[in-house]
Design a binder for these strands. Structure first.
Lengths: 159, 159
DNA sequence: GTTATTGCAAATTATTTGCACTTGG
DNA sequence: CCAAGTGCAAATAATTTGCAATAAC
């Protein structure tokens, strides 16, 4: 079953409607090869039909998240991106703190770690929502760059 | 060395000043036994001196983050909390998606997982910034509760 | 036809900023 | 003293919402 037919099925099940706007948003999400911000998605949507409002994009993204067709990923403070996850195996996401690239990776290597958390802390980790901050291969390679704020210092000191 | 003396030392090193407002914010952070929102911190600060402005609280939190004395944790969309990390061993944080409780746990169990990510993806995970979503012991225990939005469905379907 | 959905504009919320005044070193 | 820091009020930015008009089913 395709994303689209699943979407339509879900809509019908809830008594919701299939509108052109919703179709456009879903098709745009299909086109993106990496997670995109609302702004980016909205821009693409408007290329198809400039009558579509950004509030409709927000509303559609909410709906798609409710259907588990889309996830959102927070890239620090003010940057949220959305990704169509349709048929994929659940992924966890590596988020580069320098370039904001998001890499989806297999969830299995995290499972023994999750098992440890359950054992030691009784905490049931939700790996499908797990975003791991760090440096991607590229950014790790780049030695320096002008850092202003973080010249500051080392890990955690004192008490 | 205490948090306070490290703070003072850092301030002097940068030519910044030790103000009563900054002292109050730091002392309030010390009092909190779990991560707190700006709103909560601001309320406590005002109990000490109601002349302190919320913008000063924001500015001080920024400063403390630059000094690595404080970290911020995002609890989904519109909820950010701050935690004094002073002398502590770096922790990773388990964030309950139901009750928003944050539990700091030892970072070591995550290290072999991080090693795998490096090996397989060339990704250098920053475990000190890692927040793991899931259900805490308590919330896992609670069988049901009224769920409206998430009645919706199962993991990820189709493609 | 009926009700969900939309576009629009206004509201909301969290955070940031400009600036004149205050104050720490 | 005088630059750093503050309070205040206004600006920003991202998201949400109320509502009358529109369109799916």
């Amino acid at each position: 079953m395709s994303c689209e037919s699943f979407f339509i099925e879900q809509l019908q099940k809830k008594g919701f409607r299939l509108t052109p706007q919703r179709e456009i948003v879903l098709s745009i999400l299909h086109q993106m090869d990496s997670p995109a911000s609302v702004e980016e998605l909205f821009a693409k949507v408007q290329e198809v039909s400039n009558a579509v409002d950004i509030s409709t994009v927000y509303r559609t993204l909410d709906l798609l998240q409710d259907f588990n067709l889309v996830i959102s990923i927070d890239l620090g403070e003010n940057h949220r991106v959305f990704k169509l996850v349709g048929a994929e195996e659940p992924h966890l996401h590596l988020v580069c703190v320098r370039c904001d690239t998001v890499i989806g990776v297999d969830i299995h290597p995290a499972e023994s770690f999750a098992a440890t958390l359950m054992e030691k802390n009784g905490f049931q980790a939700d790996l499908t929502r797990l975003n791991i901050p760090g440096l991607c291969k590229n950014c790790r390679g780049q030695k320096t760059r002008s850092i202003t704020v973080n010249t500051l210092n080392q890990p955690a000191p004192l008490g």
